[in-house]
């Protein structure tokens, strides 16, 4: 098992290297440069522009800039924002907990609702429950996130006044945030009503972000379960006289989990894309919004390192998925 994990981690290194090339190349492909954008409407002379570019090291050939960037990374330095002049890592650590909190809530929601829905639909194949849940999943999957988000805002915030429109907590509350996770910090603060406010703020963005992964997980769980339910070992489990709950919940589900876990891992990557849109709709101060702002201002170090860190997170999640595979499926563990 240890060998398996070490092998998987070793495979991350070339991938990470590839990501540095892509993230570096991507931002430099965009037209415009940070100096021109910072000057704004005031404009600047050609000499001033050249001097500013030289000061930032952006006048060097791209390959030299890239090697410089790699050298920085090797020292654990993600660079400094051209706009805020703060280290990228500090900004990342400020914004990341908000995204992580939102993503975890969305993923938990997607798995906790999506998987049982898919399993039940497979067990009750062909019934109204199967058809209703799978058509709902298809609608959820097809819904554009920004439109779905706006619909929910109009209904729950605009008409029903059940949930706030934006932000992470009501402005009435102010307390220190040692963890950066609003749910935990609001509980720790001991302020009455703070936790409820945090939950209310988190509810709509989580539902919006969870919708697509939930639909994908439900559909995948159903098809994986349908395949497994027809296997000989499920018949053997029934032939032992086991209760139907045990046959489905233990014998079938354990095998059906293997493709479902893959999909959950892939959805974490998709969640990052969704987070950018969701955070923009709900003015959620997370890394999605941070990266979008950085792209607009051509803040090269933030985009390069931000993308690298996000990609690393996605890869680490997939590493966990690979390890989970091995835990679930002994044939992989012993391979």
């Amino acid at each position: 098992m240890l060998n398996f994990i070490v092998r998987k981690i070793a495979m991350l290194i070339p991938t990470l290297f590839g990501i540095t090339i892509v993230s570096f190349g991507f931002i430099h492909l965009l037209p415009g440069d940070p100096v021109t954008l910072m000057a704004g409407d005031k404009g600047m002379t050609v000499q001033e522009h050249a001097a500013a570019m030289a000061r930032l090291g952006l006048d060097r050939p791209l390959w030299q800039q890239y090697l410089g960037y790699l050298g920085q990374l090797a020292h654990g330095n993600l660079g400094t924002s051209l706009v805020t002049h703060r280290p990228v890592l500090n900004d990342f650590l400020t914004f990341f907990p908000a995204t992580l909190e939102l993503s975890i809530c969305a993923m938990v929601l997607a798995v906790v609702i999506g998987m049982p829905l898919g399993v039940l639909a497979a067990v009750k194949r062909g019934t109204w429950f199967d058809q209703l849940s799978m058509s709902t999943a298809l609608v959820g999957y097809s819904m554009p996130i920004f439109w779905w988000g706006l619909l929910l805002i109009v209904l729950f915030a605009g008409v029903l006044h059940w949930a706030p429109v934006s932000g992470r907590i009501s402005l009435m509350y102010y307390f220190p945030q040692p963890t950066g996770f609003m749910l935990i910090d609001s509980l720790l603060s001991g302020e009455p009503g703070a936790f409820r406010s945090a939950v209310a703020h988190l509810a709509l963005p989580s539902i919006v972000l969870a919708t697509v992964p939930m639909a994908v997980i439900a559909r995948q769980s159903r098809s994986a379960m349908l395949e497994v339910l027809g296997q000989d070992y499920v018949r053997t489990a029934r032939a032992k006289g086991l209760a139907p709950g045990l046959v489905v919940g233990r014998h079938a589900l354990r095998n059906a989990l293997i493709p479902v876990v893959t999909v959950v891992g892939l959805q974490v990557g998709a969640l990052m894309t969704g987070a950018i849109l969701t955070e923009t709709i709900f003015s959620w101060p997370g890394i999605g919004k941070w990266i979008v702002d950085a792209i607009s201002s051509r803040d090269y170090p933030v985009v390069q390192s931000g993308l690298l860190v996000i990609a690393t997170m996605v890869m680490l999640v997939n590493l966990v998925v690979d390890i989970l595979y091995a835990v679930i499926n002994p044939r992989i563990r012993h391979a």
């Binding site: 000989d232 489990a237 002994p330």
Partner: peptide, 10 residues
């Protein structure tokens, strides 16, 4: 089919 009749995960 004895191999297919046993659950591969347990």
């Amino acid at each position: 089919e004895p191999i297919a009749s046993l659950n591969p995960c347990f």
